[in-house]
Computed example of a mutant assay.
Amino acid sequence: MHLEYTLENEHSVAFHAFTHSDMQTLIGTAEGYLGANNELVTVIKVSEEFMCKGYGYRLFTEVFQYITDRDVIHSVIGSWSKHAEFSYCENGQSTNLSVFQQLKEKGFTDAEAAFCTPTGKWAKQIGFDNVTFHMIKDHEIKVEFTKN
């Protein structure tokens, strides 16, 4: 995977990821920034043909490493919603929101469902294994993953 950075500064990064084979096939994009309370906010978009192959996590960890090389991250924020920016996704909503809702319908607790979303899985893999819900609405959820 080849990364082409489009924004770099002390507290934020954005890049496009391409395959090594032709450097033209877009795997996805990633953005991340560190908020005022050292909370990591990311937007990871993986092209459909590369979904469920580990690229989302790789993009997430690239953002995480870039930021942690420059500052301390206290939490990882999840902001899952149904908005125009997700028009390319199933049901016009973020993958995280879709997964959360499907699991809630199956009887999972809020925390269990949150840790089964892509963001929740990735946060847990890097040691952020607590979740706090700041908002739960039909089409919008805000969560914060922290370390013990």
Rank of each mutant, 00 (worst) to 15 (best):
I27S: 04
I44W: 00
F108W: 04
A114N: 05
T68N: 04
I73Q: 02
I136Q: 03
Y57A: 08
Q102W: 01
E85F: 05
D22E: 00
H83L: 10
H74I: 03
Y55A: 05
S21N: 14
Y66W: 09
Q102P: 06
A113V: 09
T117S: 01
A30K: 03
M135G: 05
M51L: 08
E31D: 11
S81V: 07
S79Y: 08
C116Y: 12
V41Q: 13
Y66P: 14
S79Q: 10
G92N: 07
F64E: 01
N96S: 07
L97I: 08
T119W: 06
F115K: 13
I73C: 05
F133I: 13
T117A: 02
T95R: 01
L34H: 08
N37K: 15
P118W: 00
R70V: 03
I67L: 06
G28V: 11
G54C: 06
L34G: 10
T132Q: 12
M23N: 11
I73M: 01
E112S: 12
F64M: 01
K45T: 15
E105S: 06
I126Q: 04
T42V: 14
F115M: 04
T68I: 11
F86W: 02
F128W: 04
G28P: 15
F15I: 10
H11E: 05
E31K: 15
I136L: 02
H16P: 09
F133G: 12
G35N: 13
A36S: 14
H11S: 10
G92T: 09
M23T: 06
F18T: 10
G35I: 06
S21Q: 14
L59A: 04
A36F: 05
K82L: 06
D129K: 12
A36N: 14
N130H: 11
C89L: 03
K124G: 01
T132F: 05
D138M: 09
F60E: 00
S87T: 14
A113Y: 04
E62T: 15
S98V: 10
W80Q: 03
N130Q: 14
F60S: 02
E112I: 12
H11V: 14
M51E: 12
A36T: 14
A114P: 08
V63K: 09
I44Q: 01
W80N: 01
H11M: 13
S79E: 09
V99E: 00
V13I: 15
I73D: 02
W80D: 03
G107D: 03
T61S: 06
R58K: 12
S47T: 15
F108I: 08
V63D: 01
K104C: 07
M51C: 12
E39M: 09
H20G: 13
Y88G: 02
F86G: 02
K82P: 09
E39T: 13
H134I: 09
S12T: 12
F108V: 05
A114K: 07
T68G: 03
C89N: 08
A30H: 00
G35R: 14
D71G: 06
V131F: 07
R58Q: 09
T42G: 04
S47A: 13
L59W: 03
D69Q: 15
A36L: 11
M23K: 15
S47D: 09
I77P: 10
K124I: 00
N130E: 05
M23F: 07
Q125F: 03
S21V: 13
S47L: 10
K53Y: 06
